[in-house]
Nucleic acid binder design. Structure first.
Lengths: 203, 203
DNA sequence: TTCAATAGTGAACGATGCGTTCACTAAATG
DNA sequence: CATTTAGTGAACGCATCGTTCACTATTGAA
């Protein structure tokens, strides 16, 4: 029995509860106001259990983001309507940024520049999380683009990582610098003024 | 006499010294590790003088960023070489992000999502700083683009704020998510895979 | 079934940095 | 020279960090 609803939890069971608590706290108070005691209390765990697993707040939140990213793997099948498909995925990303995951990203970004850490380890950790976020996106957008290339609605030269990641990058930039996810009309502008013209063979 | 090198400074004189100290600290330890006492000590000022001017660390750093942005107003005259001009300005932005100003931006971004503040005031402050950063960029990039349009090397439809701001947005996104400014080869890719194709009339 | 090993709890602790206060002092004003 | 204004530096209370410890629940092997 792993799913005992009563008594004292341990191992992965407890770890999941802590992640869920951390993500809920993130959504409610944001990264800057997140308190370890609050996470522990919400998870009905001791603070020591948190520090036994992660050395500090930054590590816990990155781990929670990884956990959430793993849980949220989605599959997407292009419909053939290029703009419609892009719009759909972009809306999904924006809505995701509005939740705890977005706050986790913000906190992670906020700590990135701090010097005086183990540069190598920090670099590796940053890259691992980035890959975990970017990799699924790339797959989905690449699929949409490949579909478009077959149909002749997308330039074949557009299938480069930097181009494939363009829309998500702009959404993330908006989210980070505005404090909230891109609203509908911004998504439209990104699509119509930047992404579509770049993908389409003729202007 | 405003520029007394000895004795006790006051007013703008002291304020500038605090800003310079804050920016130096930012460059050395990053926003996440910035201590008010350290700023005060470096400026040879009392902590009380800091809190008399700004309510907290976030306000001080935003003010320092404004101060730096004001000081750094630059003029730029397009040479006529579209790609060369864009490259030059992008290099400048990247180098800027490598210094204290970049760390100020990172800290500001890190605090943006925190709930529980005066939403209106925070929103206004964020927008003011954003405008102060974006406005000069827009002017420079718009100038380059207008020049290109006259020469026929740039599509006239490309003169939209979102397009004009594209290159800086991607540089900022890179800086925020990687922890360091975009290196030369990334700037090249952004130019050759995204910005140039979007501006140029024929692919 | 018992019991030792393992893992979590909850409270207390020292350390640190926040933002405030206050008595003192230097600079500007007139 | 007297008064007002502004900065200094030290001390303070507070919140949160990350740690420690005595105690307790769970696990699994004897």
């Amino acid at each position: 029995m792993t799913e005992s609803t009563t008594g004292r939890r341990r191992g992965d069971d407890l770890e999941r509860a802590i992640f869920e608590a951390a993500l809920e706290e993130l959504a409610e108070v944001g990264y800057a106001n997140l308190r370890m005691e609050a996470v522990a209390a919400r998870a009905k765990a001791g603070k020591a259990s948190l520090y036994k697993r992660w050395p500090d707040r930054a590590h816990l939140i990155r781990a929670a983001a990884r956990y959430k990213a793993t849980v949220a793997e989605t599959e997407f099948e292009p419909s053939g309507d290029l703009r419609g498909d892009l719009l759909k995925v972009m809306r999904f990303i924006a809505s995701y940024q509005g939740g705890p995951f977005g706050e986790a990203i913000r906190g992670w970004v906020g700590e990135l520049g701090a010097s005086g850490r183990d540069e190598g380890a920090a670099e590796a950790e940053a890259e691992e999380l980035r890959n975990r976020i970017e990799a699924p996106r790339i797959r989905i957008f690449a699929k949409i683009l490949e579909h478009g290339i077959e149909q002749g609605t997308v330039r074949p030269e557009a299938l480069l990582p930097r181009v494939v990641n363009l829309a998500p990058s702009l959404l993330t930039h908006y989210f980070l610098t505005r404090g909230h996810p891109a609203p509908e009309h911004v998504i439209d502008e990104i699509l119509d003024q930047i992404v579509m013209p770049l993908l389409t063979p003729d202007h």
